[in-house]
Design a protein around this nucleic acid. Structure first.
Lengths: 338, 338
DNA sequence: GCGCGGCTCTATAACGTTATACAGGTGATG
DNA sequence: CATCACCTGTATAACGTTATAGAGCCGCGC
């Protein structure tokens, strides 16, 4: 269909190999020949067939970012950063949606797709250490977010326990005593949920507050609807909480909605904190206090490290990086930052 | 690196071609041989090299969906639908982010990427008819959303003018008279903005209401921040509006925020309507009345039509499809649906 | 007994690219 | 003058797959 090297070679009256050398500069070409070839390329509008190049070189220049939900703004924001970083390094990043599905994660991990991408950045939620260790595909893998430890791959995440500490400390500092958590998964396998609950419990203990199991609400998933339902249940308790900490911003925003519907004032009656710092939280009424991971750092680091591995750089062993986070005080805890 | 056809052939003691036939069923294979081959495949964990298959077949099984902003939930929701539909038809859909950048749209239109994907679904915002006509790439193209007409490609969109009519009629029906529009682009090139403004003006005229240019607020982009700023400006007018219609839900949500900050009641003082029906609008306080395009229909239709073209189906001429939409009444106009 | 069609399977030529080995020519060096 | 190094350019073998042509075998009908 398209114009290929042979067409150019004929047009310019040189060999195939010479055209290839002009295109990718693997070997020097005389100035006059180069110009003739270049002219032919311009005239015929040649662009290399990436499939064939891939076949020959063993690289596609494609990397993938696989996330559990495209519709979670956290991942969309992360993706935009990662795409830009990949482009700056000469790679194309494609998005994959695992839909939080175990089969999809496994397929990505060592499945057929691997054959067309040079490397994978994966945010796993349904698979664990064993599955990652069992992987056979040879291409580099970088894990982001929580869920899998002690595997021979780079891993980038925030310290979830510490993040919870920061959120709870803030709520305690503004005088809250009955602090709920929304987004635990009782029998679930989302590792980050367990870690965030752990941080929540530790921080309560450190503040000398009792741990009340009834204030820890489980959810099926981690969307706004889940947060709203859980908050309704909490409000139905005889003695409702005076603050809630959500597994993420979407859950927290769902909680805000339930509170508004029940005519509870935020933050006067109930203070709310989330995690992720999605843009949406800056426009809710009230605006949402949140733990803000450094998305730029996570996105850029994941891409850079993956590409370093692809290009065979001898980065010392698999590295686990904990990226920084900040507490952003907004209206939902009554004490907005400057 | 990976296991290939030759490895399987050796292991099973058959020829390369036979393995290929077992894998893709191009020609019948005897039952006993098939089993031996299948066993070898399972044991060695073979999966075909997509690059090589592409080179040979001329197809990759990859299609792309290019949108102006990954972080706009409308596109994220659309993408999830399209990904599922593509998967059901045996294709893999990858997301591309044009970042509303003209160069990015052009590069996608007939650039090098085309060589690795079988077809493209594009939501153009910075390019027009000429650019699309000038495209040289041979792979099928489906356009979604507004912006380009009279080109030899399938085009799927809602009727923006009619959508505006519906929104304005609703606002008029609940007694509003000073209706503003947020998200016009005065000198801009976003076609859908022009169309939505046109529908707004026509509907005002049909209702016997005057057109007041000061109530039409331009924005640089179409995010929450833009909506918030524009709303602030409108409120600063001597005679502020009693209703606003946003270019999309994100703009409308920004307007909601500005109204909350200024202590205006919604919908009592100002009613608000958006377009897109993003999930976020079901959780704002108040919930957002919106024009809901049939995202499922748009996403599925775009994918199905693209794949039909790729597979050479003789679909009659390029087709322009207008997909249906509905008005969803929620709290921001005071009259929630059942 | 021989030709013929049908059924399995095999050998092999592409697809478009890049890397390797090599050929021809030129100028410098021993 | 022969040798060597060097510089340009060429021919060609991969990469892993699929489609085509054809080889071998069996049974059937004349």
């Amino acid at each position: 269909m398209g114009v290929n090297l042979k067409d150019i070679a004929q047009r310019a009256g040189v060999s195939l190999a010479t055209v290839s050398n002009v295109v990718n500069g693997y070997r020097p070409v005389g100035e006059r020949t180069r110009q003739r070839v270049q002219q032919a390329i311009d005239e015929l509008g040649y662009s290399p067939n990436l499939g064939a190049r891939h076949l020959r070189r063993g690289r596609t220049g494609l990397i993938a970012l696989a996330v559990p939900e495209l519709t979670n703004p956290y991942f969309a924001e992360l993706a935009e950063i990662a795409i830009a970083e990949a482009a700056a390094l000469g790679y194309t990043l494609v998005m994959e949606n695992t839909a939080a599905d175990r089969e999809a994660e496994l397929a990505l991990l060592d499945g057929s797709r691997q054959r067309i991408i040079d490397g994978l950045i994966l945010s796993p939620v349904r698979i664990g250490r064993e599955e990652v260790l069992a992987r056979t595909a040879g291409s580099p893998l970088v894990l982001i977010g929580e869920g899998v430890y002690d595997v021979p791959h780079d891993h980038i995440a925030i310290d979830n326990v510490a993040a919870s500490h920061a959120a709870i400390r803030h709520l305690v500092a503004i005088g809250r005593r009955r602090i709920a958590f929304i987004g635990a998964t009782p029998g679930g396998d989302r590792q980050s949920a367990h870690l965030r609950v752990r941080g929540y419990r530790e921080a309560l203990a450190a503040a000398g507050l009792p741990y009340r199991p009834r204030l820890v609400a489980g959810t099926d998933a981690f969307g706004r609807l889940d947060g709203m339902r859980a908050m309704r249940d909490l409000l139905a308790l005889g003695d409702p909480p005076d603050a809630v900490f959500g597994y993420n911003d979407m859950v927290a925003i769902g909680a805000l909605r339930a509170l508004a519907e029940a005519d509870h004032r935020v933050p006067e009656d109930v203070a709310v904190v989330g995690i992720d710092d999605i843009e949406e939280g800056r426009f809710t009424a009230p605006t949402l206090t949140t733990i803000a991971p450094d998305k730029r750092e996570i996105g850029r680091l994941a891409v850079r490290r993956l590409i370093a591995r692809i290009e065979g750089a001898e980065v010392a062993g698999p590295l686990t990086v904990q990226t920084p986070f900040r507490l952003l005080r907004r209206e939902s805890t009554g004490t907005p930052d400057a």
